[in-house]
């Protein structure tokens, strides 16, 4: 069969595949997941960018029917599209946790997620534990973190501190994490990060019917409306279980609350394409929201049992 080359960029690797012309998104996505050994596939997607707007490969649509640049290799980013409500309960496999850890760490360092200075230092210390293992002053000599990107620039610029002073700060926390294996340190990282207000929120610039600029946030718990000046605290929230229906028509988007006494919320987004993406994110997040409130599937039960065994075995080894 005729094929074309795709490049898949994950948080820590790049891979190339020969993709058959007739393949649907799902065929490529499954191949990537199999190659990575990833089974908790429902959090992830293959992302591409079109005219500065993020888009995700549709599972039931041919890869080549997407509005992607046809220049080979056709590039996709394998990324978490949906976030768990509780990382420790929901992320079972080590590879899943690791990919989330890398993605969230990048968002924090790139200042896509606001993180206060103290939390930034603590997170950095867990990232160091994950990478370097237990602190050993005879190995981890002064300057050992000099080449590492560990803190958001905003945090560094906030204080008059030298690189050595930061290293000292981070190391004093790092030394406290003795005994934590890589996967444990990464999970501790995620447990702190998931409490940051901007964690897991997809923001979109919108205008309400009066023309006021606002932000819409879509996350694991529902839809949120923000003042553009404050991405941390929503002005209004619509939890998934309080929404009856969501719909769009061209650039207009409508949220109908379950409670008929609460006003329908209508807004405009910049493009029809954006509304399609918002609806997609709503459906996916709501689906996971419902799944979490039911018993685990057999597959997940089995995965959790396996993970527990694996953890016990590792602990014995240590």
């Amino acid at each position: 069969p005729k094929t074309f080359t795709v490049r898949i960029v994950t948080m820590d690797a790049e891979m190339e595949f020969n993709c058959e012309m007739k393949w649907k998104g799902k065929d490529l996505f499954d191949l990537v997941c199999r190659t990575l050994g990833l089974r908790e596939t429902w959090f992830f997607g293959l992302q591409y960018t079109i005219k500065d707007t993020v888009a995700w490969l549709k599972m039931d649509k041919k890869v080549l029917d997407h509005d992607v640049s046809k220049e080979e290799p056709v590039t996709f980013h394998f990324l978490a599209k949906f976030y768990p409500e509780n990382a420790e309960e929901e992320l079972v496999q080590e590879i899943t946790q690791h990919l989330f850890f890398l993605q969230v760490k990048k968002q924090i360092l790139d200042e896509k997620i606001y993180c206060p200075p103290e939390a930034s230092v603590l997170l950095a210390s867990y990232a160091v534990q994950a990478k370097y293992g237990d602190y050993d002053p005879s190995v981890h000599k002064r300057g050992f973190l000099a080449q590492e990107e560990l803190l958001p620039k905003r945090v560094i610029n906030l204080y008059q501190m030298t690189q050595e002073m930061w290293e000292e700060r981070i190391t004093s926390w790092y030394a406290e994490h003795r005994g934590r294996a890589r996967d444990e340190a990464e999970m501790e990282y995620l447990k702190i990060a998931q409490d940051l207000e901007m964690y897991g929120v997809n923001y979109f610039a919108i205008r309400n019917k009066k023309g006021t600029e606002l932000l819409l946030g879509v996350d694991a718990l529902g839809l949120h409306i923000y003042d553009p000046e404050n991405r941390l605290t929503p002005k209004i929230s619509f939890p998934w279980n309080e929404i009856r229906n969501i719909s769009y028509s061209d650039k207009e988007f409508t949220i109908k609350p379950l409670d008929k006494k609460i006003d329908v919320f209508k807004f405009n987004s910049s493009k029809l394409r954006v509304n399609k993406l918002i609806l997609q994110l709503c459906i996916g997040n709501h689906d996971l929201f419902m799944r979490r409130r039911k018993a685990d599937s057999l597959e997940v039960q089995q995965m959790k049992a396996q993970a527990r065994e694996e953890k016990a075995r590792k602990q014995m080894e240590r």
């Binding site: 009856r244 229906n245 719909s247 061209d250 459906i283 709501h286 689906d287 419902m290």
Partner: peptide, 22 residues
């Protein structure tokens, strides 16, 4: 025309989704 018109609209009923899952 219908296809194009449909392409401009989308709707999701959370209530129906919940019912179908139970």
């Amino acid at each position: 025309y219908f296809a194009r018109k449909a392409n401009h609209k989308g709707s999701y009923s959370l209530v129906d989704a919940l019912k179908s899952k139970v």
